[in-house]
Amino acid sequence: MNAKIIIYDYAWIAINVIILSGVHIGKGAVVGAGSVVRKDVAAGVIVAGNPAKPLLKERSKEFNYNPCEFLAGNKA
């Protein structure tokens, strides 16, 4: 099956993560290093492990920063 993987804005995917076909990573979600994501991750949820499971912590659901603003001030 070749379903699309969808990663929404402000999500953070750490190193060595495997995301299986058809999975959606919600807005602001975090996937810990070395995790294997087999199911959708809801917005703001932090997951880790193999298989990836939610941790007790949750990220803020308000995202009002723009990473490009930081880069614009640092042009050489």
Rank of each mutant, 00 (worst) to 15 (best):
A14S: 14
G44H: 04
A42L: 14
A33V: 10
N2T: 13
Y65Q: 07
P67I: 08
D40K: 00
Y10R: 04
L55K: 09
I46R: 03
I25R: 01
L20R: 00
V23Q: 06
I18G: 04
I25Q: 03
G22A: 06
N64Y: 11
F70N: 12
I6S: 11
A29T: 08
W12E: 15
N64A: 14
V37P: 00
M1K: 07
A3E: 15
K39S: 09
K4I: 13
G28N: 02
I5R: 00
I13K: 01
V45K: 04
N64Q: 15
S35Y: 08
S35H: 10
E58C: 06
I13R: 02
W12N: 14
E69P: 02
I19R: 00
G49E: 09
A76T: 13
L56C: 14
G22N: 06
N64W: 10
R38P: 02
D40C: 01
D40L: 05
M1F: 13
G44M: 08
A72P: 01
V23R: 01
W12T: 13
R38L: 11
N50H: 13
N66F: 10
N64P: 03
K39D: 08
V41W: 06
E69A: 12
Y65E: 10
I7F: 10
P54F: 03
L20F: 08
A29M: 09
A33I: 13
V36N: 01
D9I: 05
P54M: 03
A3F: 09
G22L: 11
Y65V: 12
